[in-house]
Computed example of a mutant assay.
Amino acid sequence: MSSELEGGDWIRGITIRQPWATCILADKRTENRPANWPWRDWVLLHAGKTLDRTALRSPLVATAITDRELHPGTVIGVARLIDCHLDQGPQQCTSPWAQRDVHHLVLADVQELALPVPATGALPAWKPKQQLVDQILHQLPHLRP
């Protein structure tokens, strides 16, 4: 591995409560956050240990997670964070996942891990240790900055 990739300098982790993290794997491309995120590039999708039980009653969520297992406390995929903007109203932010009056993290190039990797996340974004990055690269060897 080249020195430019060492230490996770090119990637960050984002912890997302379940079932929202799994919804990202199923085509949710807007993650709602209370504050702006300056980071742009790859993020590990870390499913937090906390379950948002209210979200399970949403038809949108229920459809997205059908036939999927929720893996709390694990990295379940990666995505490229390409933008973060404050909600601009339903005319501009047309995603059904976009909540009002918060910042929207816009995700692309989402890739699911075949085997979720146990990890401890943090809020808001966190720098993964090299051992975790190596485990992700073992499953996604084409992933590079």
Rank of each mutant, 00 (worst) to 15 (best):
S2T: 12
S2Q: 11
S3E: 02
S3K: 07
E4K: 14
L5W: 10
L5E: 12
L5G: 13
G8A: 06
G8S: 10
G8P: 08
D9C: 07
R12F: 02
R12V: 05
G13P: 13
I14T: 09
T15M: 06
T15G: 07
T15A: 11
T15Q: 08
R17T: 01
R17F: 06
Q18T: 02
P19N: 05
W20D: 04
W20K: 01
W20E: 00
T22Q: 09
I24G: 09
I24L: 05
D27W: 04
D27I: 00
K28D: 07
K28E: 08
K28A: 10
R29F: 12
R29E: 08
T30H: 11
E31W: 04
E31M: 10
E31D: 11
E31L: 08
N32D: 10
P34G: 03
P34W: 00
A35R: 15
W37Q: 11
R40Q: 01
D41M: 00
D41C: 09
W42I: 02
L44F: 12
L44G: 01
L45I: 13
H46G: 06
H46C: 03
H46R: 08
A47C: 10
G48H: 05
K49L: 10
K49D: 07
T50I: 13
D52W: 02
D52K: 07
D52R: 01
R53D: 05
T54K: 15
A55I: 01
S58D: 15
S58L: 08
P59S: 03
P59Q: 09
L60E: 11
V61D: 02
V61W: 03
T63S: 14
A64H: 05
I65P: 11
T66E: 15
T66M: 08
L70H: 05
H71A: 06
H71S: 10
H71C: 09
P72K: 08
G73M: 00
V75I: 10
I76P: 07
A79F: 09
A79H: 08
I82T: 15
H85E: 05
L86R: 13
D87C: 12
D87N: 12
Q88N: 13
G89V: 01
P90T: 11
Q91V: 13
Q91P: 01
Q91L: 12
Q92T: 12
C93T: 03
S95H: 09
S95M: 04
P96R: 06
P96V: 09
A98T: 05
A98M: 10
Q99V: 07
D101E: 14
V102A: 01
V102W: 04
H103D: 00
H103E: 00
H103Q: 03
L105P: 12
V106I: 15
L107M: 14
L107Q: 06
A108G: 10
D109F: 03
E112P: 13
E112Q: 15
E112N: 07
L113A: 09
L113R: 10
A114C: 10
L115H: 11
P118S: 06
G121P: 13
P124W: 12
P128V: 00
K129A: 14
K129Y: 05
Q130C: 10
Q130L: 02
L132N: 08
Q135K: 15
L137V: 02
L137M: 02
H138Y: 09
Q139C: 13
H142V: 03
L143A: 07
L143M: 08
R144E: 02
